[in-house]
Design a protein around this nucleic acid. Structure first.
Lengths: 132, 132
DNA sequence: GATTAGTACTGTATCTGATCAACTACTCAA
DNA sequence: TTGAGTAGTTGATCAGATACAGTACTAATC
């Protein structure tokens, strides 16, 4: 039933579901080496196969927040060549936060998986007589 | 250093990381049968081993939103006995949204896992020449 | 050389959802 | 009757994501 209604994963994919994890994703990218803002944006966009992207405005706001909190340091590339690029470097504090955030992500992921799979487990589908 | 600062998983656990998934978690709970508000709250709290809880106010706001969107239906239990209980029943629309949300969750989960594990993968720590 | 597209960064305004902090109201036990 | 636990509700506030708009430079095209 309802097979005419296509429901691809990218349609159901709401970017806001990444909320709270943007910082961690950016920090993860910077752990591999310094990047400039637009590069991080493209890296994340490509890593998701183009199916997903975190909006530029979201990322630049994230950079600002991370810089303010001392988790990354910003420095300008060679502006002499015209195209200005602001690079970001992860700090020791940033690495520490990253590690904690990954732990938090794993915990969150497992909790959600548990809550959803428990209810989605086959066999408990139509127990509507148990409560009324 | 800083070993006196304990950092258990529940400390790193920010409830806001579930943001966007609260609806799905509530719908998952209701898929197993009708529940009243406080019962859903306790179910989620217990399912996480007490380490986590979604705040009551958050859940009641979620019930309101789900009801407004027609994903659940609310009805009062026997008020004659004093303790009023508002029960919630998932609708067909709610089940459809639930299915889509689970798909979205799986997609999101895998994307975050990929983004984090790629950066955290051992051996790929300092390959700053591979991406330019 | 004017136009257009792409790269790169910034700022303002707005929306949503989560949370706090109260509050009402009932039941039951000490 | 006081307090704890259950059950539900509301208003205010906060943070993060996003829309939208803008600046500025480069390179390709006509």
């Amino acid at each position: 039933m309802q097979q005419d209604e296509v429901q691809p994963a990218d349609d159901a994919f709401s970017a806001d579901l990444l909320r709270g994890h943007t910082d961690t994703i950016v920090l993860a990218t910077l752990r591999r080496g310094d990047r400039y803002g637009f590069e991080i944006y493209k890296t994340i966009r490509d890593a998701t196969g183009g199916a997903h992207e975190i909006k530029e405005a979201t990322l630049y706001a994230t950079y600002r927040r991370l810089t303010k909190d001392g988790l990354v340091e910003a420095y300008w590339g060679d502006e002499s060549q015209g195209g200005r690029r602001k690079y970001y470097r992860i700090t020791d504090a940033g690495r520490a936060v990253y590690r904690r955030n990954v732990a938090a992500w794993v915990a969150t992921r497992d909790v959600v998986d548990a809550l959803l799979s428990t209810a989605a487990r086959p066999g408990a589908s139509t127990d509507k007589d148990s409560d009324r």
